[in-house]
């Protein structure tokens, strides 16, 4: 019974892949299992974990947000600009989080109230936010921040890197929000059957809006870490940021049509990507091959999930 329920868990495929990869890597590279390297994996994965958490909320409602890369850029540039103006760090951080949440609001409003497809909305806002960041910065990177800010990206507490601590806080909060609050409850229900939820008198608009705002907020947090780590805010977004987050979520068996999925799965997915990247670097795999291999691993994880699904359909 227990075995079956484990097998039925949507995170099964990606977990197997992660464990398998972990064992494989520990044989292939003596450096892999060192405490330093493991912390390094967590550090490298922290932004992806945070992004994929936000993305999970959107995807379980049946939506998608392609604009997270641009939101991160807008948020980073604004934070940097504000700090350059001599404003205290904490105000800059609040401004950055506010603008990213606002970007999420715009996406959510267009998707939910105006009822446009999320794919198209966020494709458009991806370009809009990117443009806004370029206009604001004049196309140039903004760099050099106060120590207190850099600490968020490069510092550590009890030798644990600050980004890892931030990621853990985000994990704790989001798991709770997803499982225990009405936001997670209705986000899943909306993705499952929007009409049925509406028929029950639930304010679907409100919850969809919140979900996109959560994604915006999470992106803002990720933007703080990347900006602080690089000590520079780049006005050119990395478009793959959003897609990587989507990949991490989908790998864990979360259906793009909504209604199923979990934050835990997205975290495992992000870790899988992190271990993979780290491992390939340790083994001196050329970066061209790295992309290729990551793609293959995504397919394998999704394939395992498909097998699991057909198994559980047969009961």
């Amino acid at each position: 019974m227990r075995k079956i329920s484990l097998l039925k868990a949507p995170e099964f495929g990606v977990s197997i892949a992660l464990v398998g990869l972990f064992i494989l890597m520990s044989f292939l590279s003596p450096l892999f299992l060192s405490g330093y390297n493991l912390l390094n994996i967590l550090l490298q994965s922290s932004t992806y974990i945070i992004l994929s958490i936000g993305m999970t909320f959107v995807i379980v409602t049946g939506g998608i947000d392609l604009s997270v890369g641009s939101i991160a850029v807008v948020s980073g540039i604004l934070m940097a600009g504000v700090m350059k103006g001599g404003t205290p760090v904490w105000i800059a951080i609040i401004a950055g989080l506010a603008i990213s949440t606002l970007c999420g609001f715009v996406n959510g409003f267009l998707v939910s109230k105006i009822n446009l497809p999320s794919f198209i909305v966020t494709l458009a806002t991806m370009s809009i936010f990117q443009g806004a960041a370029l206009i604001f910065s004049g196309g140039l990177p903004i760099y050099g921040f106060p120590k207190a800010f850099s600490f968020l990206g490069t510092g550590s507490i009890f030798s644990i890197p600050v980004p890892v601590i931030i990621a853990f806080v985000c994990i704790a909060v989001s798991v709770w929000v997803f499982k225990k609050t009405r936001i997670g409850h209705y986000a899943l229900a909306i993705g499952d059957n929007r009409q049925a939820v509406r028929m029950c008198g639930v304010n679907v608009f409100k919850y969809e809006l919140i979900v996109y705002m959560i994604n915006g907020l999470a992106t803002g947090v990720a933007a703080i870490i990347t900006t602080a780590r690089l000590n520079s805010a780049e006005p050119l977004a990395s478009m793959s940021m959003g897609l990587d987050a989507v990949a991490a979520v989908v790998m864990s068996g979360t259906s793009l049509s909504g209604g199923s999925g979990s934050v835990t799965g997205a975290i495992i997915g992000s870790l899988l990507m992190g271990v993979l990247r780290n491992g390939m670097t340790l083994l001196n795999v050329q970066s061209y091959y790295q992309n290729l291999i990551i793609g293959v691993v995504i397919l394998i994880a999704v394939f395992i999930d498909k097998i699991r699904n057909s198994y559980s359909y047969k009961k």
């Binding site: 409850h185 229900a189 639930v202």
Partner: peptide
């Protein structure tokens, strides 16, 4: 199937779906 039930959700969730004020 289209407008009544959230098919992937549990029986409990479906029964309590309109009870936002009571279950939260």
């Amino acid at each position: 199937k289209r407008t009544g039930l959230s098919l992937k959700s549990s029986v409990a969730k479906n029964i309590t779906l309109p009870m936002e004020k009571r279950i939260f």
